[in-house]
């Protein structure tokens, strides 16, 4: 039985663990390929207007996977941490997927969507969250060992991200492949955003690779480089806690990055993301108070590479001049 896993949204957070779980219970995971223009187009076509760009990308991945798998595993993620939330669109994701596949494949399409509800308490240890169907498929006792394995892989995966590997590199390492450590430039640059904006190379037009290319040669730091504890500690003094997990991590990352003496911060946000609109403003104020150069970029399906490149180039020129100034070379 082939189970489809769309490579979008929180796949970048949980992916390898989900894969390990399925493998452990003798089901074959089929992960969609990296986002392509075709996938994005499909997603935009079937997505409701109100959905943000990453949700549309997710739908595109689902449609793309339908012909390659028997069942589609769609998580219903309520939160990632106690007393915190992620965007409610993650809760409504299975319904959006069902609507999209019903449009394309008729009512039978909907039957092929498996919903996996998970909460911070029960990611890897609460069998009731799993669809009965899956339990029957796996056989008695299997689910428990599967979840145990998933938990293990999840920890290994997150540990690799802390070490500075990008999600696709970490996945390769977990699969037993040899990954060369990228050479990092001397100057540090922070790139923050939701994981599915940062690590979807198509959506952000390979920004991370671009910044590490020889002509720019930056060491790129993302929020995933820091542990959950580090990031929470950074924002512990806020008058009111930020209850969006991903947003809290971003603001925490700004503070942690400042201590790493990065030359500047690039904030990648997705079009029509609600929480991002609020956190973006907090990030702006934070950077302003430190005098830390900040570039905020909004990604949408109309984004041309030209506009993005112009902004990035101008921003790098700007922080270069700043760096020279600090060293007393003087420029401009």
């Amino acid at each position: 039985m082939r189970i489809g896993l769309p490579r979008a949204l929180l796949y970048y957070w949980f992916g390898p663990a989900w894969k390990a779980f399925l493998q452990e219970i003798r089901l074959m995971p089929v992960v969609s390929r990296m986002t392509t223009k075709e996938i994005l187009k499909q997603g935009v076509r079937v997505g409701v207007d109100e959905a943000c760009l990453p949700v549309k990308v997710y739908l595109g991945h689902c449609l793309n996977l339908m012909s390659e798998c028997d069942l589609l595993l769609v998580p219903r993620i309520v939160n990632l941490r106690k007393k915190e939330f992620i965007c409610p669109k993650f809760m409504g994701l299975p319904e959006m997927v069902k609507a999209a596949v019903t449009n394309e494949y008729g009512p039978e399409g909907k039957e092929r969507v498996l919903v996996w509800k998970s909460e911070h308490r029960s990611f890897w240890d609460a069998p009731p969250a799993l669809p009965d169907y899956l339990r029957k498929l796996a056989g008695p006792g299997k689910i428990k060992t599967g979840l145990h394995r998933a938990k293990q892989v999840f920890r290994e995966y997150r540990a690799l991200l802390h070490q500075g590997y990008l999600p696709d590199e970490a996945e390769e390492i977990l699969a037993g492949k040899n990954v060369h450590r990228r050479e990092q430039g001397a100057a540090g640059l922070g790139v923050i955003g939701h994981p599915y904006c940062l690590y979807d190379h198509f959506l952000n037009m390979s920004l991370l690779t671009l910044l590490q290319r020889r002509e720019y040669n930056y060491a790129v730091f993302t929020p995933e480089l820091f542990s959950e504890e580090e990031l929470s500690a950074e924002v512990a003094d806020l008058a009111k806690p930020i209850f969006w997990t991903l947003g809290r991590r971003m603001l925490g990352a700004v503070r942690a990055l400042r201590k790493k003496h990065v030359a500047g911060i690039i904030h990648l946000a997705a079009f029509a993301c609600g929480p991002e609109a609020l956190i973006g403003e907090l990030i702006r104020r934070e950077c302003q108070s430190y005098g830390l150069p900040l570039l905020q970029i909004n990604l949408d399906e109309h984004s041309g590479e030209a506009g993005l490149l112009t902004r990035i180039e101008a921003f790098l020129d700007l922080i270069n001049t700043h760096a020279h100034r600090r060293e007393g070379i003087g420029c401009g």
Partner: peptide, 12 residues
């Protein structure tokens, strides 16, 4: 003070 510190461009 003689250096570009911030910029903005129109979007779509």
């Amino acid at each position: 003070q003689g250096t570009v510190v911030d910029f903005a461009m129109n979007t779509v």
